[in-house]
Write a protein that binds this DNA or RNA. Structure first.
Length: 107
DNA sequence: AGTTTGACAGCAC
DNA sequence: TGTGCTGCCAAAC
């Protein structure tokens, strides 16, 4: 497995509960700012248990995919206190974690 | 080594 | 808002 893949998985471990980040953010954290799509593929094939795959969403607050059950992803997010309306996360900006702040909840 | 495949991003309509 | 198109990149073929 490539270094990039390991960095992606490592980035996942940093996402605080109740917060979300985007595929693009993860790509950036892993050192490949334009590899958002590749991140999705890596996560699709990832088998590491215990990683918060559901906290990685698409740009602009869209929920994005989750294998065969995107609704499970929405349910998991809801279970962490986020509100999902249709394909979007309500107040996405407030819950977004970019990796720059070490994860302390904002206001 | 060239092609295809997506859990994507960003912009033009 | 939503849809379509292009650029992108790691992996599997």
């Amino acid at each position: 497995v490539s270094v990039f893949t390991r960095r992606v998985l490592q980035a996942l471990t940093r996402i605080p509960p109740g917060r979300v980040t985007t595929y693009g953010d993860v790509a950036r954290l892993a050192g490949r700012p334009r590899a958002a799509r590749a991140v999705g593929n890596i996560m699709r094939a990832a088998d590491e248990p215990g990683l918060p795959y559901h906290r990685v969403v698409a740009s602009g607050g869209r929920v994005g995919g989750y294998g065969s059950s995107p609704q499970l992803k929405a349910a998991l997010l809801a279970a962490e206190g986020l509100t999902v309306r249709g394909t979007r996360i309500v107040d996405f900006r407030r819950h977004r974690w970019t990796g720059k702040t070490r994860g302390t909840p904002s206001h």
